[in-house]
Design a protein around this nucleic acid. Structure first.
Lengths: 240, 240
DNA sequence: GAGGCATATATGCTACGTGCAGATAAGGGA
DNA sequence: TCCCTTATCTGCACGTAGCATATATGCCTC
């Protein structure tokens, strides 16, 4: 059994510079859905390495900073968003993934209602696989051209999409991509966009209403050219 | 767009010692099922910090070594096992999780047939929560006493159990815990042990046979005092 | 204001997976 | 040979999902 005094003695003689250590970064895939399209925030790299390529917002992890704090700092600094859903995704550590030196990337993914973002930096995600098969995905510009992504960010983004598809059915994750109040049709559109396939309207409706995650507001949507649908809200807006 | 020459010039002037960097370790939760009990391999720490506490096998990551290679090296060195199922779990990075200095732990979990391990270092896992609720779990010695675990290894192990429960139903992960050939009863025992609840025998049987993951061998088990059950094998023994 | 149109919302039917009960099969032991 | 235990198979009740139909409700046109 260790004692506090033994540990203290050990710490006084421990030299953390004794071994080489990799650098550790966080990268965040900030995803949203708008106009029936899955989008991600990418920024153009201005400095070497890989200047001119596009990358997910990221930063090196500070020595006294938690990984999630670093991810939120990256989002605040490079994407100007705060208070979004954020979850750790996977840690990418191939020895040659960054040409500078050994750099690990602890990847996170974040979800946000499209209405909270200026859409200038959002790009369309093109997923070349079905279901939860996985693999890298493409990011395309407005003209349909694929953007060159930096490092292994196509893999990271692919992992984010795979995770999102996997969690959509059995967690309340879809609500993170919608405003406070929304219609069932909007929720279904979000699910269909993420999954990349159409869903049965009636069973989606029944499943959602039976899940207990929705609460009817009694209000109805506005400014539509047909019968307005009822607005719902998420029962537990706790997750952040 | 970056060019190769620009990147080369950048690399020549880049000094990786410019910033403080955390240490990076891997820790592996090696799990198995025997006698209807979920077990984990833990080793007693002989050196400070936390000497005398029990920990998952782990090691620092070498500068030119992939994360998975480091995890396999830790398994080979400290647990003397090779060629097991291994998957990344989560990266634990709380700034104070290790008293020495900032140490990130990229946690992995591994699954192995109990018959391939000397059971000396295996300890029983006690899960104090149900379903996929999550949270730390206990490791208990043969006398039923809970062992003191080092660092945040109770959290890591809890995450491993949660992941295992979550993946059991829709991936062929249970086969990793059984020998080449096994009976449906053995497979069900593994599932029940991991999930911590009994399963319906008939529907489990139907579900497994319908999944296409099993193949009948035509052979039957031996040395039992009742009707012998048929032996099956996993269709795609590819995963490792 | 009446009727048409588009969408929301509700209801009934069918197919399928699961839990459960009962029947049958096959080995060892008395 | 009979009995005991477990494996294996079959039939039925029930809940959920997919699908089709029917009704409701707002806006638009005339």
């Amino acid at each position: 059994m260790s004692t506090a005094s033994e540990d203290r003695e050990f710490l006084e003689t421990y030299d953390p510079a004794e071994f080489d250590r990799p650098s550790v970064a966080v990268d965040v895939a900030l995803l949203t859905v708008s106009d029936g399209v899955l989008r991600v925030l990418v920024v153009e790299r201005e400095e070497a390495p890989q200047a001119g390529r596009w990358s997910l917002p990221g930063t090196f992890v500070g020595m006294a900073e938690s990984l999630e704090d670093a991810a939120r700092r990256a989002l605040a600094t490079k994407a100007h968003v705060a208070d979004v859903f954020l979850e750790q995704l996977y840690t990418f550590g191939a020895p040659d993934r960054d040409p500078r030196t050994r750099v690990l990337s602890v990847a996170y993914y974040a979800l946000v209602d499209a209405g909270r973002l200026s859409s200038a930096e959002l790009r369309r995600v093109r997923v070349p696989w079905e279901g939860e098969e996985g693999g890298p995905v493409e990011v395309v510009a407005a003209d349909g051209e694929a953007l060159p992504l930096a490092f292994d960010h196509a893999e990271i983004l692919g992992m984010a999409v795979k995770r999102l598809r996997g969690k959509l059915d059995y967690t309340p994750i879809g609500f993170q991509l919608l405003p406070e109040r929304f219609t069932l049709r909007q929720l279904q559109d979000v699910h269909e966009t993420i999954l990349g396939r159409p869903l049965n309207k009636d069973s989606f409706r029944r499943r959602m209403l039976a899940s207990g995650q929705l609460e009817a507001t009694g209000e109805r949507e506005d400014e539509v050219e047909h019968r307005p649908a009822e607005l719902f809200c998420f029962t537990h807006r706790s997750a952040l």
